[in-house]
Design a protein around this nucleic acid. Structure first.
Length: 918
DNA sequence: AGCAAGACTTAGAACTGCATAC
DNA sequence: GTATGCAGTTCTAAGTCTTGCT
């Protein structure tokens, strides 16, 4: 055990005025303003510019008062109407632009609270003037010009641009006749999609579903509980639904219990050969390409695509025609990194070089997710390699067994992390390590242990690694790739798909976020006997890579998407799953469904807002709490807030807010201050509807600060209620909705004629707004302070230069030679004109550097990636890029292009939300 | 109704490698 | 050639939500 026990050391590593539904079509997201957020354990700097927000309507049926605003409602209401009908935009009257570069920046003030203790934490208090600003919706505050009209670029113009991108490609080989037919059938619509606004494809501009227009329909029974046909899941996988409709019909069918239809099979793992020599002689060996059933594997050199520049890679991809539309009638059409395993050539037309048609995908929970699934299992971390460096106990070297040494090493290498000195971390580590040391070990306490020798050894190893030549590094990388290659791919319904996390997590010390009660505990090594494999019935069972060991279990459950799982060693009742990568069809499909659901919400949002507004003073406390909670989720993009166990970090979401997390500030402001997901602090002061303010006060009355604010509420009740309002609606949909609609709105309103970099800046600003709405934060980088300081020094130097230049200028005008330079050397004798020019140039430099510094400061705690990856409908971005001739690569990196392949052929006129009557 | 199990998405930190500055 | 900064990638923790059981 000892010799194999461990792997590599873990390296630090108002009801009023709410009658009008139209008013509700806009994201009513609070903007945050300044607040000196109290520092919590995670004291992140908060961009409070956005936090002090207004609950303002973002849309504006002029005569209507926004239900969500208080003073100055008219301004905000005028802003709102523009959302639904892209005609007029919200007034920007109250929004001040500052710099050219960041037209959106100044509508917020920033309170930066340093998470890392770097820089200052200036608390910017909001002036009274700004208060009026608060009465406006975020969208209005984002400098929308009321005179401006949302551009609806003529499809012809853009279409032609798009057209140029389209390619007619040769299909991969080996397509079934059905597939070929399907592809041919799809071709026309696909190409026309680009041109016609009405074409649906993946992204129709049309309202989504007719049923969606029915407000407040109780759709719950649409998915009536049909008992699932026995045996469907594993034995005879039902045909993959070809259309969404069909799948949705099934969506309510109870999911078969994993262990039943899946029929877990204890598989003989004795022989490796057993896996490679199944009845049909299939072989998933690394040396041979994965095969999908009987299909011939297309030679796919693009497996190594990673080394190929994205441009050429995409090109070759498209020319290789791996579109999922090529897939046999099984219906899978979204694919990205997927490799169609097909033979016969065919042709197809793509809208974009990145696009994949996305029709007819399987969907729905509990549904058949695949028909055939092949993969090679998972790869384990290498066994622990002993280094033999001894720790000191009370100054004396101590002999440790390899197992003990490995865990000691895990601890030693964390010396420079903040965990190292946390009492809880040390306590948990000590408890686990002590168990390994045994009762009678000479080491009696952690504080007398000196791990320095191991730490120094570790640093040396790091240095050695760093000093390797490029060639050595390359060879090492190649070797690793060679080892891992066969584990990287799965074949799902004949399509080769990348696997997301095929590496089993190595042992280490648990690093919970925030004040996690389990931090420091030993995450034991996962062995094959911990792992359950899920694979197609006909596929060869992956060989167990560790000789003499076997999988815990092998299942054939095609109602789930995981390929393997094991129990989380820290929390054994939870699981760690191995899934396909984000670029896979399966993930793409569910991603698309997520955004479609959010779009659907747009058709209901008016009724929903009207409903909860009506309930703000409902006599039934539960209903009142549901109303207020929904309001907060809608307006603040709060998470639902499930209950948490005591052995988890103490964080909250909407339903679990404590009385102390919300402070009522008369007359009608609420200050939120709590730790949310990942112990990220959320601080935001917002003005709310008077009835909401009143209700919160009622919910707090007679309770202590640690009591639940919404004591009658939990996420089940809340979501059950939401489902009565719209089928499939849950709390998280509001986040997606608000993020996407904000992006759409801002891009439409802020994009001006200009060059690509200018447009990219507009995108980044919109992205930033969304990130702030969603409270996506990042740690201030260690070097941030130094970087800012450097800039400041440079700016100061330039200012000195200007001073000198001015003196020289005066002298030059008088015909005198310049003074000696600060370096003691004589300067060139320049004409007054030349000196003036130089002064101007230097001044320009200073201004640029100051802007850069400001941007750096503004963005130091904002994480843009999360919203881009998870919340903003990629079709908005793709369509915007098409309309404005911005290369998509400027916005999406290689990974995102693969992840969003399903969105690439979107109509350039796509808008996230269009009003029903459009 | 409440709880637990299970499956999946969302999240920030850590790590890696490349471009650029010096 | 080396240092630095950043974007991209990987890792895995921490959420949400559904379903099934009692």
């Amino acid at each position: 055990m000892a010799t194999e026990a461990f792997v590599k050391p873990v390296v630090p590593n108002g009801h009023d005025g709410y009658e009008d539904e139209d008013e509700d079509d806009i994201p009513l997201v609070f903007k945050r303003t300044s607040n000196t957020a109290s520092t919590t354990n995670r004291s992140r700097p908060i961009d409070n510019a956005m936090r002090n927000s207004v609950i303002g309507s973002t849309k504006s049926p002029p005569p209507m008062r926004s239900p969500l605003t208080s003073p100055n409602r008219s301004a905000s209401s005028s802003a709102r109407s523009s959302m639904m009908k892209p005609t007029t935009l919200p007034s920007s009257s109250s929004v001040q632009r500052s710099t050219v570069k960041s037209p959106l920046r100044d509508d917020r003030s920033v309170v930066a609270k340093e998470r890392n203790g770097l820089g200052k934490a200036p608390s910017v208090s909001k002036s009274d003037d700004e208060d009026s600003e608060d009465d406006k919706p975020l969208s209005a505050r984002l400098k929308m010009d009321s005179k401006e009209v949302i551009k609806q670029p003529s499809s012809s113009g853009r279409g032609s641009t798009q057209q140029a991108v389209q390619k007619s490609n040769t299909r991969p080989q080996g397509l079934s006749d059905n597939t070929k037919k399907k592809v041919l059938d799809e071709r026309a619509p696909m190409s026309s999609t680009v041109q016609t606004k009405t074409s649906v494809g993946t992204s129709s501009s049309k309202p989504v579903h007719n049923e969606q227009k029915r407000p407040l329909v109780n759709n719950i029974n649409q998915n009536g509980l049909k008992p699932k046909t026995e045996g469907v899941s594993s034995q005879a996988p039902a045909k993959r639904p070809l259309e969404k409709g069909s799948s949705s019909n099934q969506s309510s069918v109870k999911r078969p219990k994993l262990s039943e239809p899946a029929r877990p099979v204890k598989v003989e793992q004795g022989s490796h050969n057993a896996a490679t020599q199944d009845a049909k002689g299939k072989n998933l060996d690394a040396s041979k390409p994965l095969r999908a059933n009987q299909a011939t594997v297309k030679e796919d050199n693009s497996d190594d695509d990673d080394h190929v520049p994205i441009a050429s890679r995409i090109k070759s991809d498209s020319s290789n025609n791996k579109s999922s539309s090529a897939k046999p009638s099984s219906s899978k059409t979204i694919a990205s990194s997927s490799r169609i395993i097909a033979k016969k050539p065919n042709k197809w037309v793509k809208d974009s070089k990145y696009s994949k048609s996305s029709k007819s995908l399987p969907s729905g929970d509990g549904q058949t997710k695949w028909k055939t699934l092949e993969h090679n299992g998972v790869i384990f971390p290498p066994p622990y390699k002993r280094h033999g460096v001894k720790i000191l106990y009370q100054g004396k070297p101590v002999d440790l067994t390899p197992e003990q040494e490995e865990v000691a090493t895990m601890f030693a290498v964390m010396r420079e992390t903040e965990y190292y000195n946390k009492p809880k971390f040390r306590e948990n580590f000590w408890n686990d390590w002590r168990r390994l040391l045994g009762k009678n070990h000479m080491i009696k306490n952690l504080d007398d242990c000196d791990f320095t020798p191991i730490y120094e050894w570790y640093m040396q190893e790091k240095e050695t690694k760093k000093l390797m030549t490029a060639e050595e590094k390359r060879i090492l990388k190649e070797e690793k790739l060679k080892q891992e290659e066969k584990y990287m791919w799965a074949v799902l319904d004949g399509v080769r798909e990348r696997i997301g996390n095929f590496r089993v997590e190595p042992p280490g010390l648990f690093r919970g976020r925030g004040e996690h009660p389990k931090m420091g505990k030993l995450k034991k090594r996962i062995r094959p006997c911990d792992i359950t494999i899920n694979i197609g019935k006909e596929a060869p069972v992956p060989e167990c890579p560790i000789p003499g060991e076997r999988w815990k279990e092998v299942k054939h459950d095609n109602t789930v998407t995981w390929l393997a799982f094991w129990n989380d060693p820290i929390n054994p009742k939870e699981f760690k799953y191995v899934f396909l990568a984000a670029s896979s069809s399966l993930k793409g499909q569910s991603d698309k469904e997520k955004y479609e659901k959010a779009r659907k919400l747009h058709n209901y949002i008016g009724s929903i807002r009207a409903a909860y507004t009506k309930d703000f003073n409902n006599k039934d406390v539960t209903k009142r709490q549901i109303a207020v909670a929904t309001y907060l989720i809608d307006k603040l993009a709060l998470r639902a807030g499930n209950e948490k166990d005591d052995d988890e970090a103490d964080t909250v979401g909407c339903c679990t807010l404590k009385v102390g997390n919300v402070e009522c500030i008369p007359p009608n402001k609420l200050k939120f201050d709590f730790l949310g997901k990942d112990s990220i602090q959320y601080v935001n002061t917002v003005e709310v509807e008077p009835l909401v303010y009143k209700a919160i006060g009622q919910f707090q009355a007679g309770k202590s600060k640690t009591d639940d604010l919404f004591d009658e509420l939990d996420t089940s009740k809340l979501n059950a209620h939401l489902k009565e309002l719209m089928a499939g609606l849950t709390a998280k949909v509001f986040r997606t909705y608000n993020a996407s609609i904000t992006l759409d709105l801002m891009l439409s309103k802020e994009t001006r004629d200009g060059d690509v970099p200018e447009k990219v800046v507009v995108y980044q600003q919109a992205n930033k707004e969304v990130a702030i709405i969603c409270n996506h934060q990042r740690t201030v980088s260690k070097s941030h302070g130094a970087q800012v300081e450097k800039l400041a020094v440079k700016i100061e130097e330039l200012r000195e230069q200007i001073k000198e230049l001015n003196i020289d200028l005066d002298r030059a005008k008088k015909g005198r030679t310049p003074l000696m330079g600060s370096d003691g050397k004589r300067k060139r004798n320049l004409t007054p004109e030349a000196l003036e020019k130089k002064i101007m140039q230097t001044q320009g430099k200073i201004e640029k550097m100051e802007r850069d510094m400001q941007t750096k400061e503004d963005m130091k705690t904002v994480a843009l990636g999360t919203s881009k990856i998870n919340y903003m409908d990629p079709r908005i971005t793709v369509a915007w890029c098409k309309r404005h001739d911005v290369p998509i690569e400027k916005i999406f990196n290689k990974s995102l292009l693969a992840k969003f392949a399903w969105a690439m052929d979107v109509d350039p006129e796509f808008r996230f939300c269009l009003s029903n009557d459009e």
